[in-house]
Design a protein around this nucleic acid. Structure first.
Lengths: 341, 341
DNA sequence: TCCCATCGTCAAACCGGTTAACCTAGGGAT
DNA sequence: ATCCCTAGGTTAACCGGTTTGACGATGGGA
């Protein structure tokens, strides 16, 4: 019943503990017959090397951490998150590295979490929800932790970052809508403190040339609904609204319909992040797929490389894809004809 | 720069390593002045005990694991999951226990994950997506791992389980709909292999007395849409549909509207799990809030207790709450009058 | 005055691996 | 014949904590 140790394996195989270790690590040459005896002994005993002993000896936790500082309500409403985790895991699993998750409610809890990770709990961390000027960057640098930032950090940093240029799709989307005849295009952004919200909003403003129809939301459904209502009440109301995520877009869509707006004829809508629901709504919601799974996988790979001693680098991902759907389709024939007349 | 060890603290405080250890653990009495010197030394050096060294010495990983066996796509579409994790974490954080997440794509990967957890990576595990006859239960028992099952396991098991009686709300919902005059009520279930899907479907069948309008979905949006379409094509079509989760319900709602059904007048709809979007849709979707955060927190508490040696027990939670909203409201006045005439 | 219990601390063993240094035997080059 | 190198292994010292047996000092009871 007692778990076998490397010593038990060594005894059964008739060698020393060091030999068993070498047989597995390959750091020293071991003859084929000896290796076979060791493997067999390990197999018969059901030996699995102790994770903590190895961690102690190698000073490697074989784990990476991620601290989530959002409040639980917001976590739940993010469709990006679970898929990203899955991608991360898939990248980590190959290297047998575990993912340590920690939710921190306060700044001090967050600092504590990072501290304990720096002290042997994790070899590196993934920083999400990056702010434009994020205190965590210098803090983690001081802790001597390896980190990967998710998003384009605008300042100097000693860490790798994995980013994508959301502005491209934002512009594509606006171009598409203009092609359909829309002139008043609004944007409901995420909190502008976040680098990705900010980048999307900036692309919008640059392309449109005005902030008149820009509203700052918080990624939650309630803000999507309320800001949509506000925009529809504007004197010269927008005929199209771009949202920084699908949750807000779906809430906006729902509100628009309850007020008897026809989508896309009266109002065109588009989201961002391509929530799993979006393709299945009626009308299906135009959105930008951001492939969170792949993003997670790449992030994991970059982090593992950095932990292994690679030089931090900035990786630009090209995994955004505009998914044009019915919510921004050309106006229905009947209306189109009406417009032509 | 080098991380201070307990030895450094001992030297500065002028005591031995054992004394430092005892000063913190309290397993031996230490005089107040000595203790003060130790604390001060630790403080000044910024000492944080090494996680791996402690884990090795105490044979406690101070971590609990959770293996997610769903495929990434399904993970992303589950609103229950992130909030549950957040709740778990909140229960674990107080005890300074970390949460280890692992995504396993295959049965063998899953077994490997559990094995490595049993060998020092985790002190216990949380089993989600429980099947009615789940291979993991005997497997984990054999590994000697402590576990908590999420959901009502119907057979004997050596583990605690945290469950709730979803049948109550299912019946409430049906009663409510009947009160509104609905006679043909359908149910789109989740995969019937899962204990919770099965329990909900069973409650439905017992209350309705027929399986004619029961359809087995997979919790995904596509299946919600397609099965709704199928149900609406039935000869004597249902006037109300209950879904086993909100994702399917929202897809169903969307489809119904695209076919010009008025909700709730022509068709009443209700989901389960109260997705963050549901309250903000128009019409807002009736659903059953299952408080995943609280569920997670309680699960963590039970697991920690069991790891500490408590006797496994079955905890029945009472945190489901029916949220009646517009999608199952009384028919609109105009229609109701029409009915009365 | 003597004995024993208690308190506070120390020294050393231990947890289960990894790894640097050392040893030995055989083979090829010189 | 000598020298050096390499393959294959052993020994022992770590990694950074926890735990336990031993021990001197103090104090109370008989």
């Amino acid at each position: 019943m007692a778990k076998p140790t490397i010593g038990d394996v060594a005894r059964v195989a008739g060698v020393t503990r060091a030999t068993v270790s070498h047989a597995y690590s390959g750091k020293r040459p071991i003859s084929a017959p000896t290796k076979a005896r060791v493997y067999e002994a390990a197999e018969s005993l059901g030996w699995v090397p102790s994770h903590s002993a190895r961690a102690l000896a190698t000073r490697r936790a074989n784990a990476v951490g991620m601290v989530i500082a959002r409040d639980p309500g917001v976590i739940a409403s993010d469709s990006f998150f679970p898929a990203f985790i899955a991608g991360l895991e898939s990248g980590l699993a190959d290297a047998e590295v575990a993912l340590l998750l920690q939710v921190a409610a306060s700044r001090s809890a967050e600092e504590r979490a990072y501290r304990s990770m720096a002290h042997g709990k994790a070899d590196g961390v993934i920083v999400i929800d990056l702010h434009r000027s994020d205190w965590r960057v210098p803090f983690l640098a001081e802790l001597g932790l390896t980190a990967v930032l998710l998003g384009a950090y605008e300042q100097e940093s000693p860490f790798s970052c994995v980013r994508s240029d959301d502005a491209v799709q934002m512009r594509e989307l606006i171009t598409h809508l203009r092609g359909l005849g829309h002139e008043r295009i609004a944007h409901v952004s995420g909190p502008l403190g976040y680098v990705h919200s900010h980048a999307r909003a900036r692309a919008y403003v640059e392309e449109i040339g005005s902030e008149e129809l820009l509203r700052e939301g918080d990624f939650g459904a309630a803000s999507g609904r309320d800001l949509t209502a506000e925009l529809l009440d504007v004197a010269d109301r927008p005929t199209a609204v771009l949202y920084a995520n699908d949750t807000m877009a779906i809430a906006g869509l729902s509100l628009a319909r309850s007020r008897d707006f026809k989508v896309p004829d009266d109002l065109a809508l588009a989201g961002f992040d391509d929530d799993h629901l979006s393709a299945h709504l009626s009308p299906a919601l135009t959105s930008v797929a951001t492939d969170p799974f792949r993003r997670g996988r790449i992030t994991a790979e970059v982090l593992l490389a950095d932990i292994g001693g690679a030089t931090p680098r900035s990786v630009e991902l090209d995994c955004n894809e505009l998914r044009l759907r019915a919510s921004t389709a050309a106006p229905a024939p009947s209306i189109a004809q009406g417009g032509d007349r």
